[in-house]
């Protein structure tokens, strides 16, 4: 299953959403999310949350956005979707600790 997902990443020629990937591989969406999480944990995929609001100082690099009102983070960062892409380098070992 996991190898099929990785192969699908190589096959697609345009961005997919999870529903499309779920249909293509005939895997339940909830199960697919778990599989993607496993691949992320293994370092084979990278998950990026583009919607995460960066801290104000981090964004504006000392300019503080010239009097921006938001102290906790940039208010202009919207709710963007998370994305998964193939990692360039893979981590050699997992690091799970459950017993």
């Amino acid at each position: 299953m996991l190898r099929e997902i990785l192969s699908e990443f190589d096959r697609v020629d345009a961005p997919l959403d999870l529903d499309e990937l779920s249909d293509r591989l005939n895997i339940q969406k909830s199960a697919l999310q778990g599989m993607l999480s496993t691949l992320v944990r293994q370092g084979k995929l990278v998950k990026e949350d583009a919607g995460g609001a960066p801290a104000q100082g981090e964004v504006c690099s000392g300019f503080q956005c010239m009097g921006c009102a938001s102290a906790s983070g940039c208010p202009f960062i919207g709710k963007m979707p998370s994305s998964y892409s193939k990692a360039k380098t893979q981590s050699p070992h997992g690091s799970r600790t459950q017993r």
Partner: peptide
């Protein structure tokens, strides 16, 4: 080269 990706829509 293009690197493919999958989006998780809310």
């Amino acid at each position: 080269d293009q690197s493919p990706f999958v989006l998780e829509l809310p």
